[in-house]
Amino acid sequence: MSRSYHTLIASLPPLPKHFDVERVPISAPRLEERLKMLAEEDAQVVRQWTGFLNWDRQVLDRTDEDVAKGYHEMMARISNETLREMIEFRMDTRTIIAAVRRRRAGLPPPTGVGQWVEQIRGNYDHPEFRLQGRFGWIGKLDQALQSGEAMVAQRLLFEANYRNWARMAERFTFSFEAVLLYLARWEIIDRWTSRNESAGKLRFETMITETLGEYAHLFK
């Protein structure tokens, strides 16, 4: 008999239709508390997903090759089909973003990972790598980067991811996959709502520390 997730799913507040809200529907500590209802095997998969999300915000000195290697190592450890699909989608998105940025900087296509690497290499001169049917936001992202509108670019990517997770979530109701997709959307809302001054400052300080190492605190 399959495991039941009725109590957990019903204990989570509904997520909004759009991610750009003022605050998260459930705070991180409370969400963590609710996730304790999961069996150990499922909690392990959730840890893999949150681990990926942390890994996704990579440190600056990591090369494309390092990312590709880390990705393949991680995928070898994950057996849950929905989680694999979610990670693949996220990495596809990252590969496309990297390609758009590198092309703008006059560099060759990125090493990248995922199913669209060859498509991007073969259509590097096309404004949208001939992927506009599947990723309608590539042209708009390119324009936003060109005009230096970082927030517009960020919003576009959040919107695309959020819409994809919401579409996937329609296939599941009271299942573990529904929990994973809830967490995926919650994470986007969390990132959006925490884009404030203090979070930006913290991120900046982290980048400085990563870049300068022990010299970061030289004048403190």
């Binding site: 039941s4 009725h6 109590t7 957990l8 799913i9 019903a10 204990s11 989570l12």
Partner: peptide, 14 residues
């Protein structure tokens, strides 16, 4: 009843 009851318990938390 078990499925619906579990959902009811979860909703009571929220």
């Amino acid at each position: 009843c078990a499925r619906a009851g579990q959902a009811a318990c979860g909703a009571m938390l929220d």
